[in-house]
Design a protein around this nucleic acid. Structure first.
Lengths: 165, 165
DNA sequence: TACATTATGTTATACTATAACAACCGTTTT
DNA sequence: AAAACGGTTGTTATAGTATAACATAATGTA
């Protein structure tokens, strides 16, 4: 994890996270000649509202409120696009989606998921990837995609016994 | 991964896998004073039919054919029990279940999942776990549960371009 | 403009998992 | 043996997650 990423520090300027994520997405889409349509931008913004992964169906009411169609395919399509562009990740063990702080380059990502406050932070785990690559390589297995999802307690919740909001 | 585990070798004596898994489960249940009922044993056997993870709903027809009730709760209950006992693992990214070759002791498990032949082999990834523990520790995160699911191509499928059955 | 391409709207449905309560069964207690 | 109990299974219903398929609209391009 790079130094400027907020980890589990609960007092970071989250508005800044959101702004930056949106701005990065706009720039990258322009470079890549992809269209960050209003729906897609809204979904990205919603996913970034906090560091707690959101389920697809949790996004629908907000879409409806913004005047868009709010049937499931709408949000799944937006999520699919955002994943392809690397702007969000899906967390399989939660059936939920979370913003990616480093969309500029594709990367193997892992997550630390706190069962106390439900926040998930991305782990830039070079060492984990190396170990995995070695173990897989010994079996002749060629890695294409990695999912690393770790559940536990973040520093805040360890102190408060998991009651942190 | 220990030496006696079949990895992606497709010619291992799979009947032996099944027998051994069932026998181990019987012994462990006796030791633990748990009941390996006919339904539970059947589900375990079905999950072990091959090394491809099976979805819960794929098990239902076989349960029906064996004369049991075949409504979803039946199979989910059996799977829940088998997971608690460590006899099977759930693979979140596939919504599927696979037999565990080392149920005698709880362990952090990872999986290599081949997108060619759909086989999944368990990775006894001590090194991966260590790396993860270190990375998490740096953020003050306390690990309770790990999911490591790696998708790629097994040795067989690398040769045949992923067409291996 | 005409055409192709991409995105969105809409309806329906598939797939995955659990809630809730009744019936059954083996064990222990009376 | 009867009653009480805990655990397992049967049964119905429903919650939660995701996609198929086709129609319409918007955008980019010749």
């Amino acid at each position: 994890m790079s130094q400027d990423d907020p980890g589990f520090e609960s007092d970071h300027d989250h508005q800044h996270c959101i702004e930056q994520a949106l701005e990065t997405a706009r720039v990258l889409c322009r470079d890549r000649k992809q269209r960050l349509t209003p729906i897609r931008e809204l979904v990205l913004k919603l996913v970034w509202q906090n560091h707690q992964p959101l389920g697809a169906y949790e996004l629908l009411p907000a879409l409806a409120k913004a005047g868009f169609n709010s049937a499931p395919p709408t949000v799944y399509r937006a999520l699919e696009f955002l994943q392809e562009q690397g702007f969000v990740h899906r967390i399989a063990s939660l059936n939920a989606y979370v913003g990616c702080p480093h969309p500029e380059r594709p990367h193997r990502s892992g997550f630390l998921i706190c069962r106390g406050c439900q926040r998930a932070v991305e782990l830039n785990a070079g060492a984990v990837h190396s170990a995995l690559k070695t173990s897989a390589g010994e079996l002749g297995f060629e890695i294409e995609q990695e999912m690393v999802e770790v559940v536990g307690l973040c520093p805040d919740c360890r102190m408060t016994g998991g009651a942190h909001a």
